[in-house]
Design a protein around this nucleic acid. Structure first.
Lengths: 333, 333
DNA sequence: TTGTACGCGTTATCAG
DNA sequence: CTGATAACGCGTACAA
């Protein structure tokens, strides 16, 4: 494979000139430039990225850590990151924690070994202390997920407000016994949604019934199991607020299985607005996160960090949206 | 950030010795080794991957091209690739064509610029000529997808045999009017399934009805639209063989919407066995591809290519499996 | 067993 | 506008 010296030789110039032609930064005499370009063509020359990166000390690459790329939410955010990255000449490298559970060390290595210039993390499952340490040393921004009272740049929606939106929708439709299906509140994101659920209930003088709150796995199966547990508890409820669409969908399946009609007998509202939400039967009423936008903003934030420019804000809050479909029935404003 | 020279200085040895300690190849006197290790610890030294790669001329990285990582099938295969890669000390870089439609040039660049050592492609959407060219020059293996009469290493199931299995299941259950929902036969994989559908029908003296064969998009919506077209055609059918689970699921939804019960009024069999297949209502009877295994075998094949060892076989055919669930009713052997 | 010196392929500085 | 040359950080013959 041809290298820059070969090209220089072929074009009858010094390798410095070839470099100049490639970078296009400084001016080169048109005829010289043409000769070089011809030589590049002829030898099918491609600059060696490694050598360039070693020299410039930057890889133009960001790594993004995701809990599970299979997750529809994650995927859209990554899409946003990639589109923003591409328009700035950056590559992105996706590290899926599902494939490599010891990803902490893995991505730490990636940045310490200078293989990437920055990190976007959508996972909050490692210790806050560790990630804070990394964030102190290297460009890092959290997306979707966040930590409590920390000093790490972050892009997300206002989970408390979004949950409140969902709950108000349910309450406005006359529901008084509203159950909550969620995942582990060790993740701030679920904690915020849970707290907001309780608070909104209280604000409206509605009871917070422990039996109607179930924590489980954030998956189809998790939602299914939790809905069954709800049914088995014997406590009456006419609505479920699920802290994620997969759980909501699982719950709907369980309800249907047990002869509970959705939305007639029980309304369900989800969270995230994954692709399947619109296709499920009944179509899911849910809170939409601006997934692509979160990704784009996160990358731009990372970019200013990588350029060592000052951040305008530590935490960017993007707007959420209530998407009304079939699973709650309709409400006329 | 400390480099190897700093460590050498700290340990009072030459940088060559440090390098030896790190690689562990040649022998170093135990006390010297200890001094070096201490220095590494103290300075929190991490070798610069770029410099190392530039020097050794290999990145220990493979790139995998996927049409859409969101696809459940794709994702499992990638998982298999990653697990095999990890156990051999390789990293894998996933390039999603959805994010970067001009991926051809992209991955070509990646390997030409020496950023990766090999390629696994799950996409057959670029021209065969181009990919053949690349395969001639660099380590490349196809997975899941394939090209006709080409000379590119490949790992997949036997699509014709698998379709036959699905069709035989339907025929054995007494179906005589079987429809086929599939995607564009410009992809060999769908062409093989389609041909096998026709052939199996003919073998059993059953009619091949053009109106009962619909080509569309391989998605929920595609399957939905195609099933509606089937219904609208007025031709009678009691079963559908869908060339993909997403299409099968979309079709089931359309059938239900139009009052056709599955499996009582119409049986449906899918292809791939994606995660949702088991969770959909009714649970989908389908052909399972050994997704993880395909990935693992593909990586091992790539590895022998990268090591410049001879390939034992050009095309590895892995076994498929008929998974019987609810969407066809049950058959007693 | 250890150290010296060169080269991997670039970019950047400094003369000319 | 162009050319020589010094890094970037590492691995490895070769010599000691």
């Amino acid at each position: 494979m041809a290298n820059i010296t070969d090209v220089a030789h072929e074009a009858g110039v010094s390798l410095a000139t070839v470099s100049r032609v490639i970078s296009g930064q400084t001016s080169v005499r048109p005829e010289t430039r043409d000769r070089v370009l011809k030589a590049i063509q002829k030898l099918n020359y491609q600059p060696n990225a490694l050598a360039r990166q070693l020299r410039t000390q930057e890889t133009k690459t960001a790594i993004v850590i995701v809990p599970n790329i299979q997750n529809a939410l994650t995927h859209e955010v990554v899409f946003g990151i990639e589109s923003a990255a591409e328009s700035h000449g950056y590559q992105v490298l996706v590290a899926d924690m599902r494939s490599q559970p010891s990803i902490e060390s893995h991505y730490l290595n990636a940045i310490q070994q200078r293989q990437v210039d920055g990190i976007i993390s959508m996972s909050a499952s490692m210790t806050q202390k560790l990630i804070q340490q990394v964030a102190d040393q290297y460009p890092l921004v959290m997306a979707v997920q966040d930590f409590e009272s920390c000093n790490i740049p972050c892009v997300s929606i206002d989970n408390a407000a979004a949950s409140r939106t969902a709950m108000l929708h349910l309450i406005r439709m006359g529901h008084r016994n509203i159950a909550h299906i969620t995942a582990s509140t060790s993740l701030l994101l679920y904690r915020e949604r849970y707290n907001s659920y309780c608070q909104t209930l209280e604000e409206h003088g509605l009871p917070v019934t422990p039996e109607l709150i179930r924590h489980g796995e954030a998956s189809f199966e998790g939602g299914y199991a939790q809905a069954e547990a709800l049914l088995a508890s014997g406590k009456a409820f006419t609505a479920i607020f699920a802290a994620g669409d997969t759980m909501a969908i699982g719950a709907i399946k369980a309800l249907k299985k047990h002869g509970v009609r959705v939305p007639q007998d029980c309304a369900v509202v989800g969270f995230d607005d994954i692709e399947l939400a619109a296709f499920w039967d009944p179509a899911l009423t849910t809170i939409r996160q601006p997934k692509t936008q979160i990704g784009q903003v996160a990358f731009r934030k990372l970019l200013t960090l990588m350029k060592k420019e000052p951040l305008l804000s530590m935490h960017d809050i993007l707007p959420h949206e209530l998407i009304i479909r079939e699973s709650c029935g309709y409400v006329l404003e």
